[in-house]
Amino acid sequence: MTQSIATYSPSAGAQPRADAVPEEASSAAERRESLIVNGLLALLGILFLAPLLWIFFASVDVNASWALSWPRFTLAHFREVTRGDFLVSLVNTLLLSLVASAVSTVAAILGGYALSRRRVPLADGLMVTILFLTGIPLAIMIVPVFQVYAQFNLLNLWATGVFLGVCSLPFALWLIKTGMDAVPKELEEAARMEQASVLQIILYVTVPVALPSIFAALIYSFINAWGAFLPPLVLISDQSQITGPIKIYGLIGSSDVRYGDIAAFSLIYSLPVVILYILMSRPFSGGFSMGGAVKG
């Protein structure tokens, strides 16, 4: 992404940007500039925060509505949405996401190892194809997958989980293959001397060292399935198997809208994603982490 840097300065990149500017008496102009920068950023921050506030306020408000207003505090909404069908739909979402992440991670560990360590004909072409697949919009596969699932009586939670796992597989494979490329080959050679089988080598040598990338792939697949809306909407026919987002969608459209319950349930439903995202960004301090963006 940054190929042009080399021509400018070979020493760039690694060194931190904050050159501790000990410039002579920073002028009024400079102070005004920093005021503008911070002011603009604060304004953008407020604009981004404004829609978000509603969900927090409404979730604890006795008189919740669609509008943002200072809440008259209650925990009744949270009590209401942590039992009955609400809880069932959350458990369904969890099961769906566990199936999806297991399918994609196990397949990607085996396949990633083969692509990273073994001689695979057309490996480069395969990797490009895989990168390419990550760009295909999911919504489009719904019609053919629905048609096939309906024919084989597979319109249920488990088969939908497998489908969602496959949807995440290309990127998981990409992550894990790249992570395994960085594992020194010497580690495996010692194990091979000891007559360890390929599966043993993968399990006891490669996987532990490549764990950060495997972990990232697992969380990526989990988050994807957790957030999925259209696939569970179309591919799960049994009402007792519906997932969190479908439950909320049903509530929004109902005749008697329970604003507070919707907000509280959406908060609970969204929380795991936020936690997992923070966990995922820990092992990588690269561009795609929150830390990286915030530290500048």
Binding site: F48, F229, A263
Partner: peptide
Amino acid sequence: GAIVVVAWMLPPLTAALIWYA
């Protein structure tokens, strides 16, 4: 940074609900 990233990683349903409200 935290607010903007949270807005990005929220599940699609939650983002849609927030904007609907």
